[in-house]
């Protein structure tokens, strides 16, 4: 069916069909063992069209000016943007370093009547756990430490491998993992929470901001910068056929 189509992206279409044939052979062989009568079938990819995530309208993808965003012509939702994957890679490595600093040092220290107490984020999670608030401890750990770390570490591997021209199946599975976990990373909300709690405490005691406070602010900005340089559609295309040379 896509063979009739003589669009400029014809090459990638053919590549995707080859890919789907390769995957279907392998998974059917495996599935007949694991899942019994259940047969797995690969669908045929049509990468030259976009379907809007909000209203499902089919649209042909258009070339964009740098910094442009394509919007759905029916409901106005963003469809895709232009990305800079090399810039995103450099920002990701910076963010990883900042993340380590942010989680290793105290966020703030309070002083009152000659006594003081410092708190880091992992320490705060530990205290929640000790206070028998296990669910809460897990929730805070996952949203402020686990998911942001996974996101950055996987992105570093994915972007690094794609930059070096090695698209592979593990890279694509990592990419899928990131798109599933990303909504649960809440560094920016946490940052606001830090500010609110410091202002609340300022009435009661002397509060000294720690290294991690500034690192979290930097991490929040870096994460926003990383994602503003990544377009999911472009990243997936590169993960299938490799970076254009």
């Amino acid at each position: 069916m896509p063979e009739k189509d003589a669009s400029p992206s014809r090459k990638s279409v053919i590549h995707d069909i080859a890919l789907s044939a390769e995957i279907s052979r392998r998974t059917i062989a495996v599935s007949s063992v694991i899942e019994g009568p259940q047969v797995l079938c690969a669908a045929v990819a049509l990468p030259e069209v976009v379907a809007c995530h909000s209203c499902d309208m089919l649209q042909r993808s258009i070339p964009l000016a740098p910094g442009g965003t394509a919007l759905c012509s029916r409901c106005g939702s963003p469809l895709f943007r232009t990305g800079h994957l090399d810039r995103a890679l450099a920002l990701t490595f910076t963010a990883l370093v900042v993340f380590v600093i942010a989680s290793a040092f105290p966020i703030a220290t309070i002083e009152t009547q000659g006594r003081h107490n410092a708190a880091s984020l992992p320490g705060a999670v530990g205290l929640l756990w000790d206070a028998e608030m296990h669910l809460l401890a897990v929730l805070v750990f996952v949203t402020t430490l686990l998911v942001p770390f996974l996101e950055l570490a996987l992105l570093a591997v994915i972007l690094g491998a794609l930059q070096a021209g090695h698209p592979s199946r593990p890279i694509r599975l990592m990419l899928r993992l990131i798109s599933g976990t990303r909504p649960w990373g809440m560094v920016e909300v946490f940052m606001l929470g830090v500010l609110v709690s410091l202002v609340k405490l300022a009435h009661l005691a002397q509060v000294v901001p720690g290294v991690a406070l500034w690192s979290y602010a930097a991490l929040m900005l870096l994460l926003a910068a990383v994602w503003s340089n990544i377009d999911g559609r472009e990243l997936w295309a590169v993960a299938v056929r490799g970076a254009p040379r």
């Binding site: 966020i107 909300v189 606001l192 929470g193 609110v196 709690s197 405490l201």
Partner: peptide, 15 residues
């Protein structure tokens, strides 16, 4: 999630 983080931090700091 803001309030959850505020409680977490206050509980860690005011000890």
């Amino acid at each position: 999630m803001l309030d959850i983080y505020v409680v977490t931090l206050l509980a860690a700091l005011v000890q």
